[in-house]
Amino acid sequence: MMHAILEQDTVAHRLIGCHLVRQTPHGTIRVEITETEAYKGRDDPASHAYRAVTPRNRLMFGEVGRLYVYLIYGLHYCMNVVAHEPGNAGAVLLRAAEPVEGLELIRANRPGVADRNLLNGPGKLAQGLGVDIGFNGYDLMRSPDRQLALHISSKALPVAASPRIGISQAKELLWRFTPSD
C-alpha cells in the first residue's frame, strides 16, 4: 500500500485502522491508528517541507515508508510516515491510536495517565510506543530488526475528514482523518 499509493491524503485515509507494532525488551505493544493528518510538502504551507530541504526535514523528500520523527516544543516527539509522489515531498502525521496489545507497557511509558488519554495526541502516541528521535529514518515496511512495524489493514475503513489542528496555515484543508461513526 505505501509504495503503490503515495498521495498524502490517500495514505492518511488508508492508515486509519492499520496497526503499529512495537517490539520492546519487555514485550509487544500493538496499537490501531485512529487519527492522522496529511502534509503535502511543497504544496502545503503547514508542511515542514514547504520551503526547502533542511537537515530536519530531509526525510520528507526521501524514501516512502520511513518514519520522520521530530521534537515539538522541545518536549514531545511526533511520528510521521513519509508518503509522497516521485519527485515531491510529504508525510502523514500519526496523531492518535487505541491500544490493542501491551496496555501495561503503554501505561509504564506514560505513568499516571488515565487510559483514555494514553495515546490521544501525537506526542502521547510516540511516548506510549517508546519512540524517540532514534527512530528517525526507521523503515516501517522493511526493517530487518522489526522493532517497529506498520501492519496494513486489508480493508479500508470509513473515515471522516476534517480540518487539521494545531497549525497556523492552511487550516481549512480537510486533511485530518478519523474513523467515521
Rank of each mutant, 00 (worst) to 15 (best):
A97G: 04
N109A: 11
V131D: 09
N109S: 06
K171I: 08
L157F: 14
I152P: 00
A96Q: 15
S162M: 03
I165L: 14
A160F: 10
V113Q: 06
V131M: 10
G128M: 01
L129W: 10
L105A: 10
G112R: 10
L118P: 03
R116F: 12
V100H: 12
A149Q: 04
K155W: 13
L173S: 05
E101I: 00
R116E: 03
S162L: 11
A156I: 15
A97R: 00
P99E: 10
E101V: 08
P99T: 12
L118F: 06
E172R: 07
A156Y: 14
V113N: 03
A149T: 11
N109M: 04
I106A: 07
D145I: 06
P122I: 12
G112C: 02
L140P: 15
M141A: 02
S168D: 13
I167G: 01
R110P: 01
R95Y: 14
A161L: 13
I165E: 06
L125T: 09
L150A: 08
L150Q: 06
R110T: 09
N109I: 01
S143L: 06
L105S: 01
L119N: 09
V100T: 06
P122E: 12
T178A: 03
V113H: 08
S153L: 14
L148A: 09
L157R: 15
P99R: 00
G121E: 08
R164H: 04
L148P: 10
P111R: 06
P144E: 05
Q127G: 13
V159D: 10
S153Q: 10
L173C: 06
L140M: 13
I167V: 00
D115V: 04
R164C: 08
L125D: 07
E172P: 09
G130N: 06
E98I: 09
A108E: 02
A161M: 13
M141F: 10
V113C: 00
A96T: 09
E101R: 04
L118R: 11
W175Q: 01
A170N: 15
G102V: 03
P158C: 15
K124T: 10
E172A: 11
L119T: 01
A97P: 01
A149G: 12
I167Y: 11
A126W: 08
S162D: 13
E104R: 05
A97S: 13
K124N: 12
L129Y: 05
G130C: 08
L148K: 00
G166S: 02
Q169M: 12
P179V: 15
N136H: 09
E98N: 12
A108T: 08
G134L: 00
K155R: 15
I165G: 05
G137P: 07
F177E: 11
T178Y: 06
Q147V: 07
R110E: 02
I165D: 03
A96C: 03
D115R: 03
G121H: 14
A170H: 14
Q169W: 11
R142M: 07
G137K: 11
K171W: 08
R107T: 11
P144M: 02
G121K: 13
L148H: 05
W175D: 07
N136V: 04
P163K: 04
A170F: 15
R95I: 10
